[in-house]
Computed example of a mutant assay.
Amino acid sequence: MEKIFSFGKILLMGEYAVLHGADALCLPLKTGQELTVTDGPEGKIQWKWKYKDQMLASFSFDAASLEEESNGTANWVVLLMNFIREQNPDFLRQGGKSLEFVNLFPPQWGLGSSSATISSLCRLAGVDPFVVNRQLMGGSGADIACTTAQNWFLYRNGDNGPQTWEIPFNYHFSENTWFVYSGNKMETASHLKSFSSESRYAVSWMQANDFVYRFISVPTLPEAMQITYEHELLIGEAIGKESIANRFRDFPGKVKSLGAWGGDFFMALSLQEPGFVRGYFYNKGYGTVLSWKELTETKYF
């Protein structure tokens, strides 16, 4: 038996701009997804994806041909296996294996189920997960970088390929930062395709770097809130979308989109007490409000 763990992720700043060579601020989480590999029936690959006691997906394939033996709903998995075999043609062709992927967080939260699966399976196969992710999902690869990172970091997908720089100090405002689940799961691959056709490219994407660098080391929370506000304006203008912050004009603080706009989690910064912040979003209909510490340090949700 072999186990491989991949961490979940939050893209704090630099979303969309990172697709054009700018730097992104990435936050790997303690939660994630665990892959357990055991022997299976000869000549077969058994694939299971679970969260707690829920079976989210279950497939069986011929190990050599990858022909599915169930109901033809595993196209994404077959594509993933084929892209891996472009780098390692012998991967799981012989014998039989059972692959069980277990989420430690609700899959609808958008914390990186797909990137965790890609990363874990590529590490099992000994192939480059960034190449496979680019073929299968598109995007910058920042999610893949999070799956093996220990601390928050800067990420760049430039001419020299993916690069990361670990930030050697802790985030300054963890007591004043909240993550709120929007209630809407964003499918990254399809969203990126629509983004590429919708984006107005109205700004220089490298302007986002200024906000990223300032946010990392800003000394006061009011300054951090102003930076997030300006970053939101920049990205909103570039992609032609309205900021989620406009839904919360009466919130005593600042609200920022995270990752793909319109889905998954958004971030709130405020000087208000925890009870006030939670109550504000609960009253707006948002039932999942997590502190920085809760989201970054909890393993099992």
Rank of each mutant, 00 (worst) to 15 (best):
S291L: 00
R278S: 12
V218K: 14
F83N: 00
L66D: 02
L27E: 11
S140D: 11
S114K: 06
Q226W: 03
D53K: 15
T117R: 00
I216Q: 14
L121H: 03
F101W: 01
I10M: 11
G275E: 13
F301I: 02
L19T: 09
C146W: 12
T298V: 00
S217C: 12
M1W: 05
G259T: 07
E230G: 04
V77T: 12
A24W: 12
G21W: 03
Y286I: 01
A149M: 05
K185T: 05
W261T: 07
L92V: 02
V37K: 01
I118R: 00
K48R: 15
L271A: 15
I239E: 10
E297L: 01
L233V: 06
I216Y: 12
F173P: 13
N283Y: 08
F251S: 13
K241G: 01
K9Y: 10
C146D: 15
S70G: 03
H191G: 11
G141D: 06
H172P: 12
T36N: 05
V289F: 08
L104C: 01
G21L: 05
E242V: 11
S257N: 15
Q163F: 00
S291P: 03
A145P: 15
N133H: 10
D23W: 09
V255F: 08
Q163T: 05
A125K: 11
V127Y: 01
F169S: 07
E230S: 10
I227W: 09
R249P: 07
F130P: 08
R156N: 11
V277Y: 12
S243C: 11
L92M: 10
T298D: 02
L104A: 01
V132Y: 02
Y16K: 03
L99I: 04
K193A: 14
K293D: 10
F251I: 11
G8Y: 05
